[in-house]
Design a protein around this nucleic acid. Structure first.
Lengths: 236, 236
DNA sequence: GTGCAGAAAATCGTATACAATTTCGCCCAC
DNA sequence: GTGGGCGAAATTGTATACGATTTTCTGCAC
């Protein structure tokens, strides 16, 4: 199943082959094939996709606006390495925004939307059963798709785009600070939320959503962990 | 007084002379010196700022990520012309997000923050007294600064950036669909909100904020109004 | 005068070239 | 052996060049 990010047309007042490169790199970051801190040199990216540095640079720039890549003047682009504080802000933003999205989605939701959500849930469950890093990657993505789909249902393209950023960055944070190998008590919670929406218990759905986000965040060990730092290891 | 947008450091993991160009164009858009739909050709922008098309293009691209400029493949960049539906989404997003920001800001707010807000309010009032388009521009910006400052106080850089986008785009919407010459019953409402925060009446502050946003939106005439249409001129 | 080629001009899309900056290795002094 | 500095290599910053697409203008047919 294609990811929500690529299936949802995004914005596409776009223009070049840049989107393809951007999306490919984004997927690689979100799926953790690229780890935080990895250098993304313009030449390398360009060669990899058989385009000039011009387009590679544009794609990296785009990703920097989404907070997935940080570009430093005269030094280049790196897969973002969110600080614990940034991580907290990301989740604070989600707590702030997702209940509202949920309520808005509840207004517009149709039966087929609910079907779609349940479908996602099934897929998620299936992946949970599997073993291996590939399955874990797919699981993270599927888990994100649940939240992204809710945003899409809300009908607000702006909030949708914002959530895409938050979910992608959350994935980075989990990659960096996640503890339990499977942070997906989430699965059951997703189901509960759908159920609450379906039966019209909006307030309960919001409460569940907040708990859900809190649970994800609780699985993090938010301590400074700068690079594999040799120096830092002694400065403690 | 410098605008909040440029005073607030934004993100600045930035790199080139692009930020200067981007900010200059953004200010021009937000202050309505550039009207919606205006073509922004890469060559013109480049010549204007004495840089090559490369940098001009990068700046325009950046603005397109913020929704202030729309770039169409092989056609170029234009000052965004938000549709009525986009306008509604922008304000829906603000209603969804600003109460939360307000609550978060209330947690972190200091006495000096409150002083700062009151300062803004004074400035706003002063501008309301003046006449002329220049004053109106400054007034729009000052009004936006109130909301931006609250976001800054909240301490969440992500929500702050998001609000910057929403406020800037709101300005575009008001430019396009605003009716009353002075949409700034807002001034008094800003004062009320500060007051409510100061006295710890959080729920009331949120209610006031929602009313405030509703008032701004109520001043809009959200009817399709494509280009300065010659045809439309007769359909009246 | 209206409408439709077709060519010329302007503008964007992408690659390449060159300058500026950083990074890395090397050599030498201590 | 350690540290500092110098120079080469690599990488980014910016400009320019050239092909592709769109827009505008022109001229001819009707």
């Amino acid at each position: 199943m294609k990811s929500a990010a690529s299936a949802m047309s995004h914005d596409d007042t776009q223009d070049t082959g840049v989107p393809q490169i951007r999306d490919a790199i984004r997927d690689a970051i979100v799926e953790r094939r690229l780890s935080p801190g990895t250098k993304l040199s313009e030449s390398d990216v360009g060669n990899l996709f058989n385009v000039s540095r011009t387009l590679a640079r544009a794609a990296l720039q785009a990703l920097s606006y989404e907070g997935l890549v940080s570009v430093e003047k005269n030094r280049g682009a790196f897969v973002a390495y969110p600080s614990p504080d940034e991580a907290r802000q990301i989740f604070a933003a989600r707590r702030l925004v997702e209940p509202g999205i949920l309520r808005e989605a509840a207004v517009h939701i149709t039966r087929s939307d609910i079907e779609h959500l349940k479908q996602l849930l099934l897929e998620e469950g299936r992946l949970m059963g599997e073993r291996g890093q590939t399955a874990r990657r797919a699981e993270i993505k599927a888990s994100g798709d649940f939240h992204l789909t809710l945003a899409a249902i809300s009908g607000n393209a702006i909030m949708q785009r914002f959530m895409e950023e938050l979910v992608a960055r959350s994935s980075l944070v989990i990659a960096l600070y996640g503890q339990s190998t499977v942070s997906s008590c989430g699965h059951a919670e997703h189901g509960d939320i759908i159920e609450a929406i379906e039966s019209g218990e909006l307030d309960r759905a919001c409460r569940l959503m907040l708990h859900h986000i809190a649970h994800i965040e609780a699985d993090l060990d938010l301590r400074e962990r700068k690079s594999v730092g040799l120096k830092e290891a002694f400065e403690l």
